[in-house]
Design a protein around this nucleic acid. Structure first.
Lengths: 95, 95
DNA sequence: GATATAGTTCAAATAATTTTGAACCATTTA
DNA sequence: TAAATGGTTCAAAATTATTTGAACTATATC
């Protein structure tokens, strides 16, 4: 499992994903719970429509900020902390 | 000099400011040089119009990512690393 | 004073992001 | 099988972000 080089586009995706109040709230919620949560539960807590939820989860996933695994009908989501570490915590190292 | 609490809006401003290829390039340029540079020089290096430069510097400044000081006719710019530290390096602590 | 340089501001044009609702697919439960 | 639940997809509408050029302010130089 070698980590491939990050491009500027990857960074942009990550920062764009973080640059939205709903997605930041989702991240806070997941960070505090620290276990997989279904998309439906999160949408209910955030009080957003499922369509909007679906959109935001896609953005977060494509940025690599969340890991998604499907269990039957529903999708469960957790933070991928390695991505946060790479782009945020170790910002200067990877710039 | 007490650091005041950061709001969600502050975070959004920072991440939005980082979520653009030109601004990310400006940040890389400043990080590598590590001394104050004029807006004009940066605009020339980035090959953007001065209007566009002015716009991007405003975004970066309002996010607190750069410190600007005017010397006569021109404006010099440096990175404000404390902001990067607060929002990126120490992301989890301040979430 | 005239001209050049550094940068800002404004409004219009363009481009990108986000929200919305309806229709849809897959899985579960009655 | 029918109905409910969890989620996606699509296109239209609404909102935001970015670029552009012209006009402008302020300082420097001839």
């Amino acid at each position: 499992m070698t980590k491939s080089m990050q491009t500027t586009e990857d960074s942009i995706k990550v920062f764009k994903a973080l640059a939205d109040p709903i997605r930041l709230e989702i991240i806070r919620y997941l960070a505090q719970l620290d276990h997989a949560v279904s998309c439906g539960e999160i949408s209910r807590v955030m009080q957003i429509s499922k369509t909007s939820g679906s959109y935001h989860f896609k953005i977060l996933q494509e940025a690599g900020l969340i890991i998604v695994h499907k269990v039957a009908r529903e999708k469960y989501v957790t933070l991928d902390r390695s991505t946060f570490d790479r782009y945020l915590t170790h910002f200067w190292q990877n710039l």
